[in-house]
Design a protein around this nucleic acid. Structure first.
Lengths: 332, 332
DNA sequence: CTGAAAGCGCTTACAG
DNA sequence: CTGAAAGCGCTTACAG
């Protein structure tokens, strides 16, 4: 059984295809009697308009692209959750693109443009300023609005939805300092994410303000590697009484090693995380951490994008969402 | 600057649009000299074919749909990783759909059909057989091939890529039994996923075969709730010397509670998980568990779908991938 | 309120 | 090897 077209419906309802199109798009304009006849035909045939054809006719699409560097990165799925829910609400469908590591970043943008998306949500957090500028140029040329979700790119005219990680990190560090800690380590990732840079800056600001020497430890995401790294760290007998871990998995690895080396948490070392993931609850002791509204960041990004696509002018193009801090057993 | 069309290129290269189309789609057919002229025009203009128009003209799409019940479910992002990589390889783009909880499941299928996807990957694991049949009917009517990834639906003509969780679970249970354990609990989810049912069946088979009384404990995904549930469990002084946890987060919760109640792992209680997630490594002690090739399941599902979309007849429509078992400190 | 017709940007037999 | 033309399934001024 082939796909029904608008012709089939028109024929059955004995009207022109234009009328069918109208009952679908602007039903109020059609006389009730005709409208009902058409509606009946539609449901009898199980007709669904071909969205491709509609898009072509309108020369616009109801698709947004979501660009990620890697879907498996933490937070991406929760961001997607918010994005998809709002997209449905506004009748957009979402195409997902990941960056092809085998070609220059900008090629990915060209490919997305060719797919005729109506807007782009960029969840990539590792872009150079140059790439961001190039991307902006191409997208602007094609009148494709875009917004960055959960990342920091400061350029003019670049829409951004995030949490103030710099401030949050500052507050977290201050919390440790107020508790009398002064050998505070900042555990971050080897890869330079804009978000983690912001956290680092907040930490550095607090250190500077309170006259504490900053210590930064970078590790990969790999559990075994960081376990080894942290063991070496303790073998060198470094002075330490607190850590801030940008990722829960890193913080938990560290806690495990510290405990094995005879340190008590939080007595000897206080621990603070930046994600409120299940890890933070499953960890022993449970982790004090930032609670970032990841789902909301996704949802708000998408909502902002819908405004941009409708050529509304939103009051703000850079949105900072509130966060909270959850104190648990790894600090006191 | 508006989008360049094939006309602009044709004009610049002084050929017809048909020729331009040919150098894009079947370049070998065009005389080299003409081809080069067209290529030059294409790159001068930065022309990219409008994929919507192409799809309409070919009345087919190069888009596959991926249907999930909820993107944030564990494994979904890793499945997506495999799917996206293979999709890129075969030049498909992927649209992601989640099930709208506010309407009957089958409506979601109609919406996907309207989006003109060329094939569908279904990652939903909680469908009733009735829904699966309905879905198959609709999709068949519209000649949209589909495959289930990481789930079990046994119907005829239903493509499926998974791991033999029934067998794996049987082997895991047997491993505990061989170790002399005979009060083995199976911790599963309240929601009935086809995959978890398969695990349960393997466990039950082992119990039956070795004359052990099966015990099944169902919990929600919520850490706090399951912590309470497990505390109550121990308060009732149940006999227990081993558990199989379908999810790592559940297994870790259980371990935490058991330790707090004075049990030693694995001496008093051996623990086995079904996911090789970071939790299983971060847990103290580290968890013995199944290693399921989630990424591969996504990749193979997508590959199978490309064959189906190309109307090849794959030798097998139900693919069982190999797994392995990683023994760590939670058993011995 | 409704129909005829042009157009969206491509592809692809059909001629030549 | 290349062009003219029809067609993919819709939408939307333009008439009436």
């Amino acid at each position: 059984m082939a796909n029904k077209t608008i012709y089939d419906v028109a024929h059955l309802a004995r009207v022109s295809m234009a009328t069918v199109s109208r009952v679908i798009n602007t039903p109020s304009i059609v006389k009730e009697e005709t409208r009902n006849r058409v509606l009946k035909a539609i449901s009898e045939l199980g007709y669904k308009p071909n969205i491709i054809a509609r898009n072509l006719a309108k020369s616009k699409t109801t698709t947004v692209g979501v660009l990620v560097s890697d879907v498996t990165r933490s937070n991406v799925s929760e961001l997607l959750g918010g994005i998809i829910d709002i997209a449905r609400m506004y009748k957009y469908s979402v195409k997902i693109f990941s960056i092809n590591p085998d070609e220059p970043f900008i090629e990915s943008i060209y490919e997305i443009v060719a797919e005729q998306v109506n807007g782009l949500l960029c969840l990539d957090d590792e872009l150079s300023d140059v790439d961001v500028e190039k991307m902006k140029t191409i997208l602007d040329e094609n009148s494709i609005p875009f917004v960055f979700g959960n990342s920091y790119y400061s350029g003019d005219g670049i829409a951004n939805v995030s949490v103030d990680f710099e401030e949050a990190s500052y507050i977290l560090a201050k919390l440790l300092i107020d508790d009398g800690r002064n050998h505070i380590y900042f555990l971050s990732t080897k890869r330079r994410y804009s978000v983690n840079m912001a956290k680092e800056n907040g930490y550095l600001r607090a250190c500077k303000e309170f006259g504490i020497t900053p210590h930064i430890l970078l590790s990969t995401g790999d559990v075994l590697a960081s376990t080894k790294q942290f063991s070496d760290f303790f073998a060198n007998n470094k002075k330490i009484d607190a850590i801030l871990g940008v990722r829960d998995s890193i913080a938990v690895s560290f806690v495990n090693v510290a405990k094995k080396c005879g340190y008590e948490i939080p007595k000897d070392i206080a621990v603070v995380g930046f994600q409120n993931s299940k890890y933070s609850l499953l960890c022993q002791p449970s982790l004090t951490c930032l609670d970032v509204p990841i789902y909301d960041i996704g949802a708000v990004s998408m909502r902002l994008l819908t405004k941009l696509m409708d050529e509304e002018t939103p009051e703000k193009i850079k949105i900072i969402l509130p966060y909270s801090i959850i104190e648990r057993d790894s600090t006191r």
